[in-house]
């Protein structure tokens, strides 16, 4: 039997928790189907941008990728990025790791668009850092110049919370904070740590106002050409890997809060999360036309 080559790309550094995910994936494949697969991983954006991955999978020059693009694939998938859509880790698990009805719907949308989801991962809940302003509830954001990624629902929500959201490219955040172009930003702890934002910020509020999941996908064409008997194994291997990645990301983020505190950030733990609800609801209303209210509610109510 010929070896089946599988080329997987992602744009995180080689040492990222995605490596644990793909490492476990390879290990399980090798254990259950010895010698059948040759999995090649291309980290650190070696093969281009995530937009390119999507198109390359359609062209057949790339077999799979781990990525965090959603609305670009199908606007309904923007539901995954809505602010305050996930209550906590258990809720994320219910939506993306339980095989629930809503997970099937999300996977189904991606399949329609030509991508087979093997499993979901995450970078973690996002926290707001500022240059001194202590954010305990939504009204503390009033008038704050904060950098956010260029995601429409976030812009809407941050405006509703009274802040001035400024979308800058990630690479420019550090110097923008240093220069005072913006005075705050929000990211998962891992990004705050690796990009050294703690050097130019004073406080971090554990708002957990959003969480961008990432998906490990294969192109539908590639998936459908895989021999029947290998598919379940591939799915299982990706899921086992994702459990490790998700656990590692959550643990690392928890540890990093302590390390960021040691680096001098004041950690605001007593955040009134419910105060962010009303502003988030405004962004849901604005997105209803493209996402569909029933999908938003399905995610909100997943148990």
């Amino acid at each position: 039997q010929d070896k089946i080559t599988m080329r997987i790309a992602h744009n995180m550094p080689e040492a990222h928790s995605y490596a644990l995910w793909l490492g476990k994936f390879k290990e399980v494949l090798e254990e259950k189907l010895p010698g059948r697969f040759d999995v090649k991983v291309f980290p650190a954006a070696q093969l281009g941008t995530e937009t390119e991955y999507l198109e390359s999978m359609q062209l057949g020059t790339l077999d799979g990728a781990i990525m965090g693009r959603h609305g670009q694939i199908d606007q309904r998938l923007d539901v995954l990025n809505l602010p305050m859509i996930y209550r906590d880790d258990a809720h994320v698990d219910a939506v993306l790791h339980s095989g629930s009805e809503v997970q099937e719907r999300l996977d189904g949308i991606l399949f329609e668009r030509g991508y087979k989801v093997l499993a979901w991962g995450e970078l973690g809940f996002r926290y707001i850092t500022t240059n001194g302003k202590e954010v305990r509830n939504a009204s503390d954001l009033q008038g704050l110049d904060i950098r956010v990624p260029n995601v429409q629902p976030w812009l809407t929500a941050f405006k509703a919370w009274g802040a001035n959201p400024t979308p800058l490219p990630f690479e420019e955040v550090y110097s923008a904070l240093q220069q005072g172009v913006v005075s705050a930003q929000e990211n998962p702890p891992e990004n705050i740590w690796t990009s050294k934002f703690y050097e130019v910020q004073k406080t971090m509020s554990l708002t957990g106002h959003a969480n961008i999941p990432s998906q490990f996908v294969l192109s539908r064409g590639y998936w459908e050409k895989l021999p029947e008997e290998t598919r379940e194994v591939v799915l299982d291997a990706a899921r086992q890997g994702s459990l490790i990645q998700v656990a590692a990301a959550r643990q690392a983020n928890a540890d990093l809060v302590a390390r960021l505190e040691a680096e001098g950030l004041t950690i605001i733990r007593d955040v009134d999360k419910e105060s962010f609800r009303a502003g988030a609801e405004e962004s849901y209303k604005a997105s209803e036309a493209t996402i569909g209210r029933d999908l938003i509610d399905a995610v909100l109510q997943a148990q």
Partner: peptide, 18 residues
């Protein structure tokens, strides 16, 4: 071929077919 294939790939910001 790329042009026709990328007509259902939306751009990041303007959301027009790439």
């Amino acid at each position: 071929q790329i042009v026709t294939q990328a007509m259902n790939s939306l751009s990041d910001a303007l959301k027009i077919p790439r």
